[in-house]
């Protein structure tokens, strides 16, 4: 009896998630006439992807990857030390610091983006990849710090102390014990920073006009089009390009999601 219910609910969940995604991906390859008439397309084509490349979506894709990588680099360099400190040391102000970081996490991006756009125009960072990466770093930094603190915090203390007792320096303990043990979690943190950047829209739109990242480019009028609208399957091609890498990353990150979201309790 219980097994039947588990089976039914599992099937519902699987359908709820996979049907929309699969159908979108399928539609992005559907022949146009076919798409408007049949539930399951019979003829398939790559023309939307090809056309997209001509419209500059390929470049937007490259920009998205570059911004994502820049975001990883910046947020790791800046955020990992803080994550280590919070996960490893007990110091005055640690709790208020955590609370402040939590607060940064929920600051509306719109508030940050508009003034920064004005500033970036003045200093020449507007519409540049660095400019977007800078704000994406600001957005992902709270996540990086809190996740890293939980990753470092879960490296048992006595493993490090054993290192000190047997004569290692602080740096040696870090390199030989702490980092190898924390590595999988740190990798997940990096991927998560990338995902945040890859998926971020508001700041990307506001801080750029021509050099847009993928989701921002997809949102521009001539793609989404309120006037000379492109046929639907184009949109699905864009969706497929955005969704596929994200779903693959998720496969790796998923074990760490509880640390990223759950452990950040406001208590």
């Amino acid at each position: 009896m219980r097994r039947v219910w588990v089976f039914i609910i599992s099937m519902l969940i699987i359908a709820w998630i996979t049907v929309p995604i699969t159908y979108t991906i399928l539609s992005s390859f559907a022949d146009l006439v076919d798409y408007y008439e049949n539930v399951l397309p019979r003829r398939y084509t790559l023309r939307y992807y090809e056309e997209y490349l001509r419209l500059g979506v390929g470049e937007a894709l490259v920009r998205s990857v570059l911004v994502g990588i820049l975001t990883i680099i910046l947020s790791m360099i800046i955020g990992l030390p803080a994550g280590y400190a919070i996960g490893r040391y007990v110091f005055r102000g640690r709790d208020s610091l955590k609370l402040a970081i939590l607060f940064f996490k929920v600051i509306p991006i719109a508030i940050m983006a508009v003034p920064l756009a004005v500033l970036f125009i003045r200093v020449g960072l507007y519409d540049t990849l660095i400019g977007i990466a800078l704000i994406h770093t600001a957005i992902s930094l709270p996540f990086v710090v809190l996740t890293a603190s939980s990753v470092f915090g879960s490296v048992p203390r006595d493993l490090e102390e054993a290192g000190y007792v047997f004569g290692m320096s602080g740096l040696q303990v870090m390199l030989r014990i702490t980092l190898p043990l924390a590595a999988p979690g740190i990798a997940a943190t990096a991927l998560f920073a990338f995902l945040i950047s890859w998926n971020e829209i508001v700041a990307a739109i506001i801080l750029s006009s021509f050099n847009r990242t993928l989701p921002a480019a997809v949102m521009t009028p001539y793609v989404m089009g309120t006037g000379g609208e492109l046929p639907d399957p184009y949109k699905f091609a864009a969706t497929t390009i955005m969704v596929t890498p994200a779903l693959i990353f998720m496969l790796y990150i998923r074990r760490y999601l509880i640390a990223m979201w759950g452990a950040a309790g406001v208590r």
């Binding site: 969940i13 699987i14 998630i17 996979t18 995604i21 995902l195 890859w198 998926n199 971020e200 829209i201 989701p215 997809v218 949102m219 864009a238 969706t239 955005m242 969704v243 994200a246 779903l247 990353f249 998720m250 496969l251 990150i253 998923r254 999601l257």
Partner: peptide
């Protein structure tokens, strides 16, 4: 995994 997968998908998509 499937249930939490949409977490990886952005608003636009």
């Amino acid at each position: 995994y499937l249930f939490i997968a949409p977490l990886a998908i952005n608003e636009v998509a």
